[in-house]
Amino acid sequence: MSEENWIEVGSIDSIEEEDLIRFDHQDKTFCVYRLTDGFYATDGICTHEAVHLEDGLVMDDEIECPMHQGIFNIKSGEALSPPACEDLKTYPVKVDNDKIFIKID
């Protein structure tokens, strides 16, 4: 893993617990989550239809799409409930000096 692929998202205070923020970088968009046990990141767009998950509901380890209630596991990206059936891509996250970074490949 090369260091330069870690992209700064923002301060850890920018996300409330059990919530997410949208993060755009170059031509890609992501969701960065704060769960009770840490920070996680996934692709921003639902795999079912082109809607951003930033307006979705975070419950425990799951993100639910605001359009059709497809549910994904935030940590693994696994599609858990129809109409979503394709998994969501996840990205490594680290916290350094109270700042969140995600590793984009």
Partner: peptide, 11 residues
Amino acid sequence: IVGKVGRDIRI
């Protein structure tokens, strides 16, 4: 607009 009511409706 797409995405704006889903979370509140789910809650």
